[in-house]
């Protein structure tokens, strides 16, 4: 780590945004992505602006429309055990609890997982499936980015350097989806997904609505709307057809965790399993 590295811990969002104006400044949440990247020389900020001292970013609260808003500094350990998340947005808890291991999730945040924009970001698939909104503050004001516009490529999010993600909102309309996040990795804790498949189904609505999203098999986390429509038209009986459509739609690469061919086959297997378990 450079010896001239500076560290500031503002207590308001406005203060934090003003501090970011200086080039070479990076936001710091749990640091579980940023610090290893700095140590490996992949990122070299000159000063860190720690957002964890901003009280407003630590809350999970009911949003005005009956959804749930998760502050940027809330650790994943608190997301996965939150009664409102477990009750209304269980798919997010399913994904959150697969990130790293329990102590890592005491630091790692949902916002950090998104902003890092890894194709393997486990919580991204839940947020894509649940049509989350990413709330952003900058010197230009506040805005909201729909999650489907957020991921641009590996490590690339739709954020400008001055943008501070303040909260992630799960809309009321996405409450009640149940299902599973089926995830393959080389060991069960502490390894990024080789393949991650989320399959969800709405509870109580007729006809049922479906959600299918994939991690680690394309340059960004993917939501497969066409596969969802197929399931909405034909139901769980179309599990095989859905699996084939997902297999074709993914765009995996070969890396140390698995080959492209293996990943593609596993997408098919896991989509079929996920759909059948909801049949």
């Amino acid at each position: 780590m450079p010896t001239d590295l500076d560290y500031l811990a503002p207590t308001t969002v406005d203060e934090a945004i003003a501090l970011k104006a200086m080039p070479g400044t990076a936001w710091l949440l749990g640091g579980t992505d940023l610090l290893p990247q700095m140590r490996a020389g992949r990122k070299a900020p000159e000063r860190l602006v720690d957002l964890k001292r901003i009280p407003g970013l630590h809350e999970i609260r009911e949003s005005a429309d009956g959804g749930l808003s998760i502050g940027a500094a809330v650790p994943l350990a608190d997301v996965e055990t939150h009664p409102g998340v477990l009750d209304r947005f269980p798919l997010l808890a399913e994904c959150a609890k697969t990130v790293g291991a329990w102590p890592l999730r005491q630091r790692a945040t949902l916002a950090g997982n998104l902003c890092n924009a890894s194709p393997a970001a486990d919580t991204a698939v839940a947020l894509l499936a649940l049509d989350a909104e990413v709330k952003v503050a900058s010197t230009a004001g506040r805005r909201s980015i729909p999650i489907r516009e957020f991921f641009l490529g590996p490590g690339l999010a739709a954020l400008s350097p001055g943008d501070l993600v303040t909260e992630i909102v799960l809309p009321a309309a996405s409450a009640g989806f149940r299902g599973s996040y089926l995830r393959l990795s080389r060991r069960k804790g502490m390894d990024l997904a080789t393949v991650g498949v989320l399959v969800g189904k709405s509870n109580g609505t007729l006809p049922a609505r479906w959600r299918v999203a994939l991690a680690a098999v394309a340059p960004t986390p993917l939501r497969l709307r066409a596969v969802e429509e197929l399931l909405e038209a034909k139901g769980a009986a179309a599990a095989g057809e859905a699996a084939e459509a997902a297999r074709v739609a993914c765009r995996p690469i070969t890396d140390l965790r698995g080959s492209a061919e293996y990943r593609r086959e596993m997408v098919g297997v896991l989509v079929r399993r996920g759909v059948e378990s909801l049949g």
Binding site: G31, L35, K52, W102, Q106, R107
Partner: peptide, 15 residues
């Protein structure tokens, strides 16, 4: 750290 288990190699002393 405040009662939570953390990897102290991923926490800066200033934090």
């Amino acid at each position: 750290l405040d009662g939570r288990p953390v990897n102290s190699c991923l926490v800066l002393a200033v934090e």
